[in-house]
Deep mutational scan, measured.
Amino acid sequence: MIINNLKLIREKKKISQSELAALLEVSRQTINGIEKNKYNASLQLALKIAYYLNTPLEDIFQWQ
């Protein structure tokens, strides 16, 4: 199981879903879906999320 901390980290950094989506060149709905565990981010997208949030990938998506 993967624990998804994207919403928590994004909100801590005061970045909206729309802002993050624009940086990543995806839709806001994609970010929303990832945060609600409706969609799994591809490895490429997960790495981009970590880069733009300046946060280690394993802090955003944790295996349990």
Rank of each mutant, 00 (worst) to 15 (best):
L8A: 15
Q64E: 14
Q29V: 10
V26K: 01
L57M: 10
V26R: 02
E25D: 14
K14G: 15
S16T: 13
K12Y: 10
I49S: 00
I34G: 00
Q62D: 06
P56R: 09
L53M: 06
S27Q: 05
K14W: 05
P56L: 05
E35G: 03
S27W: 04
K38F: 12
N40C: 15
W63P: 05
L23T: 07
Y39V: 15
N5S: 05
A46G: 10
F61I: 03
E11C: 11
S18H: 10
V26W: 03
Q44S: 14
R10D: 02
I9T: 05
E35C: 04
A22S: 12
N37R: 08
A50P: 00
A22N: 12
D59R: 08
P56Y: 04
A21I: 03
F61V: 02
N4M: 05
I60P: 00
A50C: 06
K36Y: 06
T55Y: 05
S16H: 05
K14T: 04
Q64N: 12
L53T: 02
I60K: 00
I15F: 08
I34A: 02
S42R: 05
S27H: 06
E25N: 15
A22H: 11
E19N: 10
A46K: 12
I9L: 09
G33V: 07
N5M: 07
R28L: 15
E11L: 12
Q44R: 13
L8H: 13
A21E: 01
I15Y: 07
M1S: 08
D59L: 11
I9N: 02
L24H: 00
T55A: 07
N54M: 09
L8T: 15
L8P: 07
W63C: 10
S18G: 12
N40S: 14
S27M: 03
N32L: 09
N4Y: 04
F61K: 01
I2K: 09
I60N: 01
A21Q: 01
A46L: 14
L8Q: 15
S42K: 05
I9M: 07
Q62S: 10
G33I: 07
I34R: 01
I49V: 05
I60G: 02
L20S: 00
L20C: 05
Y51N: 07
L45V: 06
M1L: 13
Y39I: 15
S18A: 14
L6N: 01
A41I: 15
M1H: 10
L6H: 01
K38I: 14
Y52A: 14
K7W: 05
I3Y: 09
S16R: 07
K36G: 09
K38M: 13
V26P: 01
E35W: 03
K48I: 04
S16Y: 04
S27N: 08
I49Q: 00
